[in-house]
């Protein structure tokens, strides 16, 4: 789906991204981790041609982003920005979704059908004015307008920042379902709990360099790597690491409970044996 080959990018003399190579396959759910200023947003913008690499090559579904128009890449990618207000430009939720469809779906009836489908999926009232809604509802509107276009690759730049827990779960639930149906997701997130719950693979960026790439479960337990990238693991993996022996595999609350029970059982057996 997405392929980076020795990609470098810089705004001035210094490179914001240096020598990034990786590949994301169809249907993956990948998180992009790193502290502020590590180059995450830049890397995400390189994926759909909003930025073009200064050297190296980025290909999306086989198209080189340097040779194809960004608006053409947009026909099969969706990009949710951190601030939904930059996207929303119509005065009803319905209008906003329809506006996004204008460029991809020529058929009016088809457009209406898709908009209705999205309103249902997000339980949004299409007549409402987005500007009077809460931040979370505006984020949902923005995402609905993007998803109506049925992107194959979904790029999310901190989709849950500024949302309350319920809104966060609604958005991540929808994204997660789409991923299960085959949409590839590449997401920047600072919220390690969200990453632990939803992403399967993680790329770690530090100072513009890719310093880690692996399963989220492994990355969250790689203390040295996280330290290098100034990241903190999610709570349960962190607890598991601090407990060490016999617990280090626990990743979710359920697994931790199981580990405690197993440890108790071992102790009981040990005591009986004595």
């Amino acid at each position: 789906m997405l392929r980076f080959e020795e990609v470098c990018f810089g705004y001035g003399r210094e490179n914001t991204i240096s020598g990034a190579s990786f590949e994301i396959g169809d249907g993956e759910f990948v998180a992009l981790l790193g502290e502020n200023g590590a180059g995450k947003s830049t890397l995400l913008r390189l994926c759909n041609g909003l930025l073009k690499p200064t050297s190296g090559r980025v290909t999306v579904r086989g198209h080189d982003t340097a040779t194809i128009k960004t608006s053409a890449i947009a026909s099969f990618t969706g990009f949710l920005f951190q601030n939904p207000d930059r996207q929303i430009c119509q005065n009803t939720v319905y209008g906003e979704i329809m506006f996004g469809l204008e460029y991809v779906v020529p058929d009016e009836l088809e457009r209406r059908g898709r908009a209705e489908e999205m309103l249902g999926l997000f339980s949004l009232d299409g007549r409402r004015d987005p500007f009077g809604m809460s931040r979370g509802e505006r984020q949902q509107t923005a995402l609905a307008a993007i998803l109506a276009r049925r992107p194959k690759l979904l790029l999310l730049d901190e989709p849950t920042t500024g949302l309350d827990y319920r809104e966060c779960m609604t958005i991540m639930g929808i994204v997660s379902n789409l991923n299960a149906e085959g949409t590839t997701v590449f997401m920047i997130s600072h919220d390690m709990e969200v990453v632990a719950d939803f992403a399967r693979r993680a790329l770690v960026l530090s100072g513009g360099r890719l310093i880690g790439d692996g399963r989220v479960r492994q990355i969250m337990k790689d203390a040295a790597l996280l330290r290098e990238a100034s990241l903190l693991p999610a709570q349960i993996p962190a607890l598991a690491m601090s407990l060490g022996n016999g617990f280090s595999d626990a990743f979710t609350v359920d697994e931790m409970v199981e580990s405690v029970e197993r440890a108790l059982l071992r102790r009981a057996c040990g005591a009986r044996a004595q």
Binding site: R45, N48, L50, K69, T70, S71, A74, S75, T77, G78, F79, F81, N83, R86, Q87, C89, G100, Y103, V104, A145, I146, R149
Partner: peptide, 19 residues
Amino acid sequence: EEMLGIMEAQTARGVEFDT
């Protein structure tokens, strides 16, 4: 900066600002 951000968001959804 805001205007650039808005144009970026619209380009990403297929509005042809790169025309």
